[in-house]
């Protein structure tokens, strides 16, 4: 029975993702990909190819997008509230990514580690025209903005997480993987509390 329910939830989420994707306004994929590519290239130039600095900038940029995008997501996706941290994985993978990027991801998690999951992205639209030069490979996380978006969005719904790329096909890995680790369940803090 448990298995049947899980499959039903998965089908529902897939449908929610597709419906949200249909509803949302689209932009030209090439323009989007090239704008992102130009941003990364400019960051590299501004930072003398310091990949650590650029990774951080991209993550930050993503964070600032994530804390806004989450409201768009909640208002327009029709997704129901998550009951726990693991629930957020499937919702991001099947509804969120579909809604904003048109792709879905697979989730890898283990029962022994309820505070960690991985998003496995097979098709990453940000990578579309990209081939990393040898000197950047192994240092630059080209799509790091996505890790930041996940971190920002989850923080707004009270999950403080670490979110980072651990694999990227651009580096020659077999899959693109973002690992999300729960660090703290945030509690609502009210201004008047300390007074």
């Amino acid at each position: 029975l448990c298995f049947v329910m899980a499959t039903q939830v998965a089908t529902l989420q897939k449908k929610q993702g597709e419906r949200a994707f249909e509803r949302i306004e689209k932009i030209n994929a090439e323009l989007f990909t090239m704008t992102y590519g130009a941003t990364v290239t400019q960051f590299l130039r501004d930072n003398n190819d310091d990949c650590d600095a650029v990774n951080k900038l991209l993550d930050n940029m993503g964070y600032n997008i994530g804390i806004r995008l989450i409201d768009e997501f909640l208002a327009k996706s029709g997704a129901t509230p998550c009951r726990n941290f693991q629930d957020t994985a499937e919702v991001i993978a099947k509804v969120g990514l579909k809604m904003f990027l048109g792709v879905t991801a697979n989730v890898a998690s283990s029962i022994d580690e309820p505070n960690v999951y991985s998003l496995l992205i097979e098709e990453n639209p940000l990578n579309l025209f990209v081939e990393l030069p040898e000197e950047l490979r192994g240092k630059l996380w080209f799509s790091n903005v996505l890790a930041g978006v996940v971190r920002g969005a989850l923080e707004m719904v009270m999950y403080r997480v670490e979110s980072k790329f651990v694999k990227d096909v651009l580096r020659g890995d077999d899959v693109t993987e973002i690992r999300v680790t729960l660090q703290e369940l945030l509690r609502e803090k009210f201004e008047g509390d300390d007074e």
Binding site: I70, D71, L74, A75, P81, M156, V157, E188
Partner: peptide, 13 residues
């Protein structure tokens, strides 16, 4: 004398 209608988002607004 009055009613207060309330809605809260998951993001805390």
């Amino acid at each position: 004398k009055f009613k207060l209608h309330y809605f809260e988002t998951q993001t805390g607004y």
